[in-house]
Amino acid sequence: MVRLFGPLVGLFFAVALLWSFGNGAYSAITEPAAPTAEHEFHLHPKDVKFASDGVFGKYDKQQLQRGFQVYKEVCATCHSLKHVAFRDLANLGYSEGEVKAIAKQWGTKQPTFDEKSGERAERDNIASDYIPTVYYAGQGVPPDLSLIAKARHNGGAYVYSLLTGYQEQPAELLKKFPDSKTPDGLYYNPYFANLNLAMPAPIASDDQVAYSDGTKATVDQMSKDVSAFLMWTAEPKADKRKQTGWAVLGFLLAATVLAYLAKKNVWADKH
């Protein structure tokens, strides 16, 4: 039975697939897929190095602090970090007092709700609070940045490229795709998936942020620092993960060598 019906079923699927293949091939020749602006002008992230790259990489805390400063002074007006608590900033090297002060002075306050009176109000942030969500009137909620560096391929480089990638729409693009002109209120950026995004270049000029550690606050430097910071917010445990990894791999290597020798011993008389 199986030997009879098996080949029949096989033929059925095979013919159906040939049918799809033939039709697909025919339409691919007669009406080839039209090229799109996204397809031709979208760029992969720039090649940029971070201290945390690679299996030995570690976050540069000084850089993370600068990145946090850029986030606080530039990004935080619109973008929240709801998975990061103020207390987490202690891992960037801030003291308990500094963390408290950062929380207290944070621009977006914690919403409160009094169940008795039904009143909604605000209070200052405290260290155990998560960085509050920003509601941006008229535009909805801009994306939360906690995980942005993991939510994009090659996320750190992506953020850096996006921040430094704003430019005039190339004439070549307009010539080839006249319908793809960047709409009003959007900005052209080849590192963004559909080339036009609603956010104007946030880091526009040197010294937009005053660094206190003597680093020169160029647009490139600030973009890099905030990208590094967002890599940390996405994966705060990366340093500990790699450290644990080396200990585990070292142990496993020794154990595996021993297991190999033991296996050879056991099998010594059977080969």
């Binding site: 142990f251 020794a254 154990a255 021993l258 011993n265």
Partner: peptide
Amino acid sequence: RDFINIAAVSFAGVG
């Protein structure tokens, strides 16, 4: 050989 076998089993135990 005994030593290696014992060491291998101990490693598994420690792990």
